[in-house]
């Protein structure tokens, strides 16, 4: 196997562009996915079956079907219903956020349910409303416990954003495929992006670990 570094250098600019788009995609999905996840998670733990049912369905659908399929459906079927022309970046952000929302909802639910029942009872017995008890007592405690699984989900999101290449969103994987097409080489593009993804996820893990340690000492 001969490894041609010169074509990687030739593609360096495009890879950097791709990295920026990958980071952008991931950040959007992390933000929207977290907000969505909190809402869906709170909806799912509702005592009323009528409220919790649609949220349970949402989670079942998005966790039970491949992200690959979700991206294709959202890009080619759903987005055209609302916009005149479909847009790969929009579709990728929407698909990744909706998908992440389902997983993050389960993280929020587990985090909230892991807080002893006595905490809610103490807060309520002091006259707080359910919402106040959630906001001041339950959520601040559960967020600490959610950091490790949330970090995990964020790492998964960075990696999964590579699937957006199939709808030609110009992220990292897209340029790898471009390079493979142009030179008909496999090792150089795929190994390069593998290393770049590894660096991205390790960097994120590093910061999450530090955050986790800092929260522990508080």
């Amino acid at each position: 196997m001969d490894f041609n570094f010169s074509i990687i250098i030739e593609y360096a600019d495009l890879f950097i562009k791709g990295i920026l788009i990958t980071i952008q995609l991931s950040l959007y999905a992390i933000c929207f996915g977290t907000i969505l996840g909190l809402l869906i998670g709170l909806g799912k733990i509702s005592k009323s079956k009528w409220i919790s049912f649609p949220f349970k369905c949402y989670i079942a659908i998005f966790r039970g079907t491949p992200l690959y399929v979700q991206i294709l459906i959202i890009h080619f079927c759903v987005i055209p219903l609302f916009l005149d022309s479909t847009n790969a970046m929009t579709a990728a952000i929407v698909a990744l956020s909706l998908n992440a929302g389902a997983y993050i909802a389960e993280i929020f639910r587990a985090g909230i349910e892991s807080i002893e029942r006595g905490q809610m009872e103490a807060a309520r017995s002091l006259g707080m409303t359910h919402v106040q008890a959630m906001r001041y007592i339950i959520l601040p405690q559960s967020v600490k416990r959610m950091i490790p699984p949330l970090g995990n989900e964020f790492v998964v999101l960075i990696k999964d954003s590579s699937l957006a290449a199939i709808i030609a969103a110009p992220e990292l994987m897209y340029y790898a495929r471009l390079m493979m097409g142009q030179y008909n080489r496999v090792w150089e593009p795929y190994l390069t992006v593998a290393v770049i993804y590894l660096v991205l996820t390790l960097t994120l893990s590093f910061f999450l670990n530090r955050l986790e340690r800092r929260l522990k000492t508080v």
Partner: peptide
Amino acid sequence: QQFNLFPH
């Protein structure tokens, strides 16, 4: 019985 102070 279990106090239920807010640990945070």
